[in-house]
Amino acid sequence: MLSWALTFLIIAIVAAVLGFGGIAGTAIGIAKIIFFVAIALFLISALSGAIRGRRPPL
């Protein structure tokens, strides 16, 4: 999921360099949303693993 956020960030940077302000703003917004969703899912996964007491495999 973080790869999608990085992809949209790169699209936004390229669009901003080429002068497409609207597209760049939209891509940055999408990248932010995907990034925060990925962080939230990671935290939920980490908390549920800590509550269960399971250790990650080696």
Rank of each mutant, 00 (worst) to 15 (best):
M1T: 11
M1W: 05
M1I: 08
L2Q: 04
L2C: 05
S3M: 04
S3A: 05
S3W: 00
W4C: 07
W4A: 13
W4H: 09
A5Y: 02
A5N: 08
L6Q: 10
T7D: 07
T7K: 13
T7Y: 08
F8M: 04
F8W: 02
F8R: 03
F8S: 00
L9A: 07
L9R: 11
I10N: 15
I10C: 10
I11S: 06
I11H: 11
I11L: 13
A12H: 03
I13F: 08
A15D: 02
A15Y: 05
A15P: 00
A15E: 03
A16E: 03
G19H: 10
G19I: 02
G19D: 07
G19L: 00
F20N: 01
F20W: 05
G21E: 10
G21K: 06
G21I: 01
G21W: 10
G22Y: 09
I23D: 02
I23L: 09
A24Q: 00
G25S: 08
G25H: 06
G25Y: 03
T26D: 09
A27M: 04
A27C: 14
A27P: 09
I28N: 04
I28P: 05
G29H: 06
I30E: 05
A31G: 13
K32I: 12
I33N: 14
I33F: 11
I33W: 11
I34T: 14
I34M: 06
I34L: 05
F35Q: 04
F35C: 11
F35K: 09
F36K: 14
F36G: 14
V37N: 09
V37C: 10
A38R: 07
I39L: 12
A40F: 15
A40H: 12
L41D: 15
F42W: 06
F42L: 14
F42Q: 06
F42H: 08
L43E: 03
L43A: 12
I44H: 13
S45G: 11
A46G: 14
S48I: 12
S48W: 06
S48Y: 02
G49I: 07
A50E: 03
A50L: 07
A50V: 08
A50D: 00
A50F: 01
I51S: 10
I51Y: 07
I51R: 15
R52Q: 14
R52H: 06
R52I: 05
G53L: 05
G53E: 00
R54A: 12
R55E: 06
R55V: 08
P56A: 10
P56D: 00
P56T: 01
P57N: 07
L58S: 11
L58D: 08
L58G: 03
